[in-house]
Computed example of a mutant assay.
Amino acid sequence: MAEPYGESPLAARAEALADAAAPGALRLSEVAFTAQVSLRVDPKSPAAERIGTALGAMLPNQAGQVARTERVLVAWLGPDEWLLVGPEGSAGQLQATLTDALGEEHGAVVDVSAHRTIIEVSGPKAPELLAKGCALDLHRRSFGPDQCAQTLLARAGVLLLCREADPPHYWIFVRASFARYLADWLCDAAAEHHRTRSTGALT
């Protein structure tokens, strides 16, 4: 039997994202096919503690916090909701781990891997690029590493996550249906930095 084949939402924009880069200043790419699992559970319940123990990192309990282990990233989405992100192909194992730890307690574990893709934006000019379409204060003192926020970027609803501050490194989680629109917007917004670098290289 032939193996099923899937194409990432931004496969057709891979070259455009790469071309929008400004060497040493800005890089854009898709992080495709990550495992993404939604978790709903009472943060004060024994199940939440068991889940944290099973993951190797307790569930973040403050708005916008992100916890990380070697293989899993846990982003706070609400008082009783988290998004867990792991390597490609790990959704089933992640679901099983969460479901076993949840036990008979009230909660929900849902594979949402197909709902969103990730656009990675990094480099010294990354905050400046994102600020063109996002109202968040992206200064590292306000939005630093291991912080996330659900916000609008170029009028598209996204989950913006800061992975590193120096140099700036962001993941943008966007619904598959809006991914190409947002990729095109980012490429267009990045053109200014690309031209600036190109001009500087010639002077």
Results as ranks from 00 to 15, higher is better:
1 M>G: 14
66 V>S: 08
158 V>T: 10
107 G>K: 03
139 H>L: 12
13 R>P: 04
141 R>V: 01
94 L>T: 09
43 P>N: 07
173 F>H: 11
16 A>F: 00
159 L>A: 15
104 E>I: 13
95 Q>M: 15
172 I>G: 01
187 C>A: 06
164 E>H: 15
7 E>D: 10
110 V>Q: 08
135 A>V: 09
66 V>Q: 05
61 N>H: 12
111 D>W: 11
90 S>P: 05
64 G>A: 11
184 D>S: 15
195 R>T: 05
7 E>Q: 09
25 A>D: 03
36 Q>F: 04
79 P>C: 01
158 V>M: 05
30 E>D: 03
173 F>C: 09
102 L>T: 11
53 T>V: 06
138 L>T: 02
72 V>D: 13
63 A>W: 05
107 G>C: 02
54 A>H: 03
145 P>L: 09
4 P>H: 14
94 L>G: 10
70 E>I: 02
63 A>D: 00
29 S>D: 08
110 V>K: 14
89 G>R: 05
134 C>G: 10
138 L>H: 05
116 R>Y: 12
184 D>L: 07
75 A>Y: 07
20 A>V: 08
21 A>M: 00
142 S>C: 09
51 I>L: 05
71 R>V: 13
88 E>Y: 06
132 K>T: 00
115 H>C: 10
71 R>F: 11
178 F>I: 07
58 M>Q: 07
31 V>H: 01
121 V>E: 11
